[in-house]
């Protein structure tokens, strides 16, 4: 019941890139297919050729480097959820994985697919954004690494070229005391697209707030950072009043729409509530609370 297409089963990354390079733009990589197959069945996507990349060695596995971890783009959400490496470096990503669809989908959906799909509600995006993640993009001719924040362009739009694939996602490590957390407000526990989601990353420096990053999902055409709120908090002692002001700035940075999941007014307010809640929680956890 899918539209007709060709399926290529390359044995390695090089072959996959050759395929993507030759026959674009109707050539699309597929791994878990949790979004793509559904989109094809509804005719939202009608690629002429699919390149099956799910078992390509170079795209699987979680690598430990000195300064970062590299998550292969075909690593599934279930694998992320089980990874002690990721739990140590990016706890917010584990929380996002826990609320990601259902266990069945988590066994198939990949981190690369979730990012390439570029839904404003992509569950992994806010957590990766607050961890300053980068994406490594490969094509036959070219390789580049860019910050995740620059990867998203708009609703289901990224800078990914037709001949490119996401090779891996880099998440930097830090020696500084830090913590992160993610909160998704859905209309049900998981498996429902979120009304709003927020991730926060916080570092402790000299008893005050060091670097802080805040990101939001489902409240703008793309997942985005709340830079003004971050700036307000950096280097400060975290009072409840300050946290509230930062949460207000985050809400102002959002530009939600009204749809069946909630009105714009409600969603913006929820950015405020979730940001305040996460900042309070992390401040308590890091013994940074100044109240």
């Amino acid at each position: 019941m899918l539209p007709e297409f060709d399926l290529v089963m390359p044995e390695n990354l090089q072959q996959a890139l050759e395929n993507l390079g030759q026959r674009n733009p109707g050539v699309v990589p597929v791994a878990g297919g949790t979004n793509l197959t559904v989109d094809m069945r509804s005719r939202r996507h009608t690629p002429a050729t699919l390149v099956n990349i799910e078992h390509i060695q170079e795209l699987t596995g979680i690598l430990q480097e000195d300064d970062r971890i590299e998550i292969g783009s075909c690593v599934t959400i279930a694998e992320i959820l089980k990874s002690p490496i990721i739990a140590a470096v990016a706890p917010a990503l584990i929380e996002a994985a826990r609320g990601f669809a259902n266990p069945l989908i988590r066994n198939r959906a990949t981190i690369g697919g979730n990012l390439a799909d570029a839904s404003p509600a992509a569950d992994t995006a806010p957590s990766l954004l607050v961890h300053n993640a980068q994406v490594e993009l490969w094509s036959k001719k070219n390789r580049r690494i860019l910050p995740l924040d620059e990867f998203f362009v708009g609703v289901r739009k990224t800078v990914l070229q037709p001949d490119e694939i996401i090779k891996s996602v880099h998440v930097p490590k830090t020696n500084r005391p830090s913590a992160s957390s993610f909160y998704k407000l859905g209309l049900r526990k998981a498996d429902a697209i979120s009304v709003a989601s927020v991730a926060v990353y916080l570092e402790k420096k000299n008893g005050a707030c060091g670097q802080v990053r805040i990101a939001m999902g489902s409240v703008a055409p793309k997942p985005l950072r709340a830079y003004a709120a971050e700036e307000l908090l950096t280097g400060k002692h975290l009072s409840l009043k300050l946290i509230e002001e930062a949460a207000k700035l985050a809400a102002e940075a959002s530009s939600p729409i009204s749809d069946i999941r909630g009105s714009a007014e409600y969603r913006r307010r929820m950015v405020f509530v979730l940001t305040r809640r996460l900042l309070t929680h992390l401040a308590e956890m890091m013994e940074l609370k100044d109240w």
């Binding site: 297919g33 197959t37 099956n52 279930a78 069945l104 989908i105 198939r108």
Partner: peptide
């Protein structure tokens, strides 16, 4: 591993 077959392409089971 438990997977949904409605969104797997048959050749992916090869």
């Amino acid at each position: 591993k438990l997977v949904p077959t409605c969104i797997l392409l048959a050749p992916q089971a090869d």
